[in-house]
Every structure is written in C-alpha cells, then in structure tokens.
Write a protein that binds this DNA or RNA. Structure first.
Lengths: 250, 250
DNA sequence: CGCAATTTTGATTTTGATCAACTTCTGTGG
DNA sequence: CCACAGAAGTTGATCAAAATCAAAATTGCG
C-alpha cells in the first residue's frame, strides 16, 4: 500500500494519550467545526488508548458494554458466532472508524471485535459521551450521524447479500475498501487485504473458494491484479460499471 | 389475527393528536420511567399525526429528512430501489416501531417507506428531538437505544442472508413476526401476513416461488398452517429447533 | 527451515432461480 | 350480484450459480 499523506504521531510515552485535538484522524472521527472549548471537552472525554495485538479481541460478545471505540491504528473485523462454528462477519473497520455501537441497546456487546493486525483504539466511555453530548450539540449531532451511518452501511450490506451475485459482491467489497483507503489518504487503486479469503467470504455470504474464483475471473478479465493479498484495481470505471450494469439487467 | 388486549383510542377529532402520555404504545415507543414533567415535554415534541393510505409512501428515497416516525397504527415496509426494478426490502414495521433513522446521517431519506395497509404515524421532528433529548437524559438514552436496536436488527438480517438456507430464512421471518405480535398483545401463533410473497422474498433475499415452496414444505411437515395470508404456527418449539439445529450442523 | 494455514483450481452436487402453466383471489364495473 | 380482468399464489420442469468435495501449490509464522 502506498501512503500518500502522513503525519508524525508522538508515541514515545505509550501511556500518554494523544489528544483528539492533535489527532490526524480528527476529521474522520470528530465533527468539524468544534470550538476550542468544545474540543477541550472532547479531549477530556476520551478515556485513553488500548493496544490490541493481531488475533486478539477488543471485546467479546456477551461482555458488558461500557464504551465505544475509535480505531486509531490498525484493522478490525467484527463477527457474530453461532453455537457451531458458522459465523457472519458484520464489518471490517479501519483507522478513524467507530466500533461497538451495537452494544448500546442491551448494554452488552453482541459481536466479537478481533484485530486483524496489531492495532490501537481510543476508548470513549459511553455514559460520559452521552452526558457531554447533551451539553455540546455539535457533538450530539455527530454521534447521531455516526450511528445513522452505521444503519445505512448495514442496509447496504443487506442489498449486497440479498440482491447481488458472487462476483458483484466481491467487486462491491473491493470498491468499498478502495474508497475508504482513499478517504484516509492512501492509494485508492492499490492496497493490501488484511483479511483471509475465508473472512471475506464470511463477510459477503460466500464460501472462500467462491471468493478466490471471483478474484481469478476478475483478473482474467483484466479488471484487477491479484498477488496474494496485494490487490490492484486496474480499471475502476469498468468495475463500477459492473455494479451499475448488473443492477440494470434484471 | 386475534387481538388479545385492546384499549379504546379517541379518534373523534382526527386533527387532534393523542398525547404520548395517553398512548397505548407508550411502553414500546417511549422510555419507561419518565417523570410527569418529562412526559409533558415529550407530548410537546410530537408534531402531530399523519395518515398514509395503503400503497402510499410515507417518504421516498431522496427526500429531505426532517423527522422520524413512530407507527401508531398499521404496517409499513421500507425498501431500497435500484435503477432497474431490483429492490431490497430492508424492513417491515408495525405499530410502536420507529421509522426513518437511516436519514439522519445524510439528512436525506435513502429508502422508500410504503404503507401496506391504511396506517397512521406520529411525526417526531428530529431537530427538536435532538434538542430536547439534550435536556432529558432518559429520553436521550432511549433514542440511542432505539438507534442501536436498529443496528442490531440489521446485523441480524446480515446473519440471515449470509448464513441461512431459504427454509431457515422463512422460519426466522415467521418467528420474528410472531414475537413482535406477541409483544403487542396479539396472538403469537396466528397472524395475517400484510405483505405479498414477493415482498417477503425481497426481504429475505429469495424469489417469491422459493418463499411459496418453503411455506408448502413447512406445512407438509406439520410445522405451520398456511391459508393464503393467514398463518398459524403449529409447533413453535420445533420451528425454533429448526433454526438452532440448522446453525449446529454446518 | 519446516509445518500448518491459506489459496487456487478442478470435478461434482445441491440449492435456489428461472421459465411456464395453471389456480385462486380481489376488486371493479356492468 | 355476477362476470371479468388483473394480481397473487402454487406447483412442476429445467437451468445456473454457488457449495461441497478433493487435491495440489504456496505462503508465512514460530
């Protein structure tokens, strides 16, 4: 992956937290247009950082919900496990994205959040967030937007799984990743997959073989280049068409 | 459908709104434990009622978002339409449920809400709701729970569409309806479907023929009785097993 | 370096979609 | 009230897409 924009982050003292007001993810994670004083309040709010090693869980289903998490660094998946071993991956989460809002309703997490690489999150104690957002309307509005965005995202997943073919799902997945990397200042057309084919399948409602075959087919058609986990999108507009066309020929 | 509990509602003056404090859906729609004064504030908040005739839209995708809606009476579907004609039904919504929260993030509705029978909704202007919930913590907390519950519901849909067979999906759909009717004081084991087989299919990610066949098979097995749109669940525990088993044999 | 995990590819089977015919229901107008 | 047309639902035959089974190749972690 090619990082286009970067900014130094002081991590010399690991126990010391970087204030939101200094964070390079600010514009993804926080509302724009906070005043100095409001920003100071938010800085107080964030309850520190937590490192999660690759393969480790940030939280498990069933654990009491106390906070939501902003991914500071790294990459997570969230998944729901059935008694057996069937599992549905409900999302992949990269730096600047918020995690854990499904726990608010029952005050219990109902999925597992697993780090797919060594990661770090900012902890946002939820009761404090509620209290402060009652006093800072901009923050309140932002919280509601973030939650609503999650609802919209989930409904997009429904469309994908209810109405799209295997190949369309894979294309939609790649374009979505691309767009999110681009929003973070990384290259849009070239990136490393942090997850296995099986995890992609569990996310898209497909088997890993089907995902692999879709990759191969797209490569044959010259639309993407697959080299293990490194993906290059060779023809983004044709990929986009593939989705648009697909939904125009039913 | 057999209504077990009923309560008279004054509708003599159609322009006059029933106060939330008097509404028989209160415990579904409002937080329990509001003080008298808080309830009075909420009563002020609700911006009146709106009737929607069967087949009509409460709102369309693309329209500006100004309010969320509580279903007072009737039955809705929400759906996302593709350019062609493919559509994904994202939910069915009955009395006491809240509708339209997907519009918060972009301030634009991004699905259509269609009444499946003559219906009535309470209008809750969202900017006022935000303002007041900043002052009434119980209400704020409730709003967050309602939004989070929607996220959890959507993730349940993902599991259904990503990991369940056609028959499992249909069973899951019926049990879910049953449970929601039960929560409203209606019979859990006997109800009328308000939607067509095609709409059920569009919700479950299946074709209408497949839904019809699943009904027939479940009937043959003595699990349900289907008579047009009237459904009876003959063996709820075996239906539940079917889902549990299913997720235990993969 | 070596072994377990991951990925690719092929052959076969299964599930649900598609195509088609027919039945039943619903609502409307004569 | 009945006839009729269109919508909705059922059922069967066939087809296509993705799952499953299987084997081999590759990778990357300890």
């Amino acid at each position: 992956m090619v990082k286009i924009a970067e900014r130094a982050v002081t991590l010399s003292d690991p126990g010391h937290r970087t204030a939101c007001s200094q964070c390079n993810l600010q514009e993804l994670c926080l509302p724009v247009g906070l005043s100095e004083t409001e920003l100071a309040v938010v800085d107080q709010l964030v309850g520190g950082r937590r490192k999660v090693a690759r393969g480790q869980a940030l939280f498990h289903s069933g654990e009491p919900f106390t906070a939501i998490y902003a991914v500071k660094l790294g990459f997570f998946k969230t998944e729901v496990l059935a008694a057996d071993g069937r599992h549905q991956v409900t999302g992949f989460h990269m730096a600047g994205e918020v995690l854990g809002m499904d726990g608010i309703s029952t005050e219990t997490h109902n999925c597992d959040a697993i780090a797919l690489e060594d990661s770090e999150v900012c902890l946002i104690p939820f009761s404090e967030l509620e209290q402060i957002s009652g006093q800072v309307p901009t923050l309140q509005r932002h919280l509601h937007r973030v939650m609503s965005r999650e609802i919209v995202r989930d409904q997009g997943m429904m469309i994908m799984m209810g109405a799209m073919s295997a190949e369309e799902r894979v294309v939609s997945f790649l374009l979505n990743l691309s767009q999110r990397y681009a929003a973070r200042g990384y290259a849009a057309a070239e990136f490393h997959l942090r997850m296995t084919r099986e995890e992609i399948g569990a996310y898209l409602g497909l088997k890993l073989e089907t995902v692999s075959r879709a990759f191969s087919r797209l490569q044959e058609e010259g639309l993407i280049a697959v080299e293990k986990k490194h993906i290059r999108l060779l023809d983004v507009s044709r990929l986009r068409q593939l989705l648009a066309q697909a939904s125009a020929c039913s």
